[in-house]
Amino acid sequence: MSYHYPLDETWSKEEIIDVVNFFSLIENAYEQQVEREELLAAYRRFKDIVPSKSEEKTYFADFEKASGYASYPVVKKARESEQKTIKLK
């Protein structure tokens, strides 16, 4: 990984760890697979930290620009799926 996660310097250390964990799960959904419930829990925590939809879109866009991985399709699939694991190509 040769890119940086989109972060806000006003977040606490715990919030930064939780956001990095969420984006790491997004990466894993493309590279391997992730547990659906773990991803949804991480997304709920992400939304606690970034409640604004417009801010969420900004962080998702910044992450996609840096990594090439789109977050929204992963979250959407996890919400709509009944499968235990999520994998995107």
Rank of each mutant, 00 (worst) to 15 (best):
Y72W: 15
V19Y: 00
E14K: 15
L7N: 05
P51I: 08
Y69P: 01
E37C: 10
I26E: 00
E56R: 10
E31C: 13
S52Y: 10
K76N: 10
I16W: 06
V20M: 08
S67I: 03
A70F: 07
F23S: 01
Y72I: 06
D62L: 14
K47W: 06
R36S: 06
K84Y: 13
N28K: 15
Y59D: 00
E15Y: 05
Y5K: 09
L25G: 02
K87G: 02
R36K: 14
S52P: 02
E64P: 01
V75H: 00
E27D: 11
N28C: 14
K53W: 11
E9G: 10
E82M: 12
S12N: 12
E82N: 14
T58F: 11
Y69A: 04
S12D: 09
E15Q: 15
L39D: 01
L7R: 04
A70P: 03
N21I: 08
S81H: 05
A78G: 05
L7T: 06
V50R: 01
D62T: 07
G68N: 03
D18H: 08
Y3D: 10
K89A: 15
E80R: 11
Y5T: 13
L88P: 05
F46V: 01
S54L: 14
Y30N: 05
E37H: 11
L7M: 13
L40I: 09
Y69T: 05
K77S: 07
L25S: 03
A61P: 04
K76Q: 10
H4C: 11
A41E: 12
D8F: 11
A78K: 00
L39P: 00
K57Y: 09
F22R: 03
I49Y: 06
V20A: 08
L7C: 06
N21C: 11
T85S: 07
Q33V: 09
H4I: 12
V19G: 03
P6D: 04
Y3V: 05
F63N: 00
D62N: 13
S67C: 08
K57R: 13
T85R: 06
R44I: 07
E9K: 12
A66K: 00
F22N: 00
H4E: 15
F60R: 01
K77Q: 11
F63M: 04
R44E: 13
Q32W: 15
Y59F: 14
E38L: 11
S71T: 07
F23D: 02
Y3T: 09
V34T: 05
L7G: 07
S81T: 06
K47F: 03
W11K: 04
A66S: 11
S24A: 12
V74E: 01
F46P: 02
S54P: 05
A41Q: 12
A78L: 04
I16V: 15
R36W: 04
A41T: 13
I49H: 04
F22A: 02
N28H: 14
D48R: 08
P6Q: 03
K57M: 08
Y69M: 08
V20E: 09
K84T: 12
L25D: 02
E15V: 05
A78C: 04
T85P: 00
E56M: 06
V75D: 01
S12G: 13
K13I: 06
S2K: 14
L40V: 06
A41F: 07
A41L: 12
P51N: 05
Y3A: 10
S24Q: 10
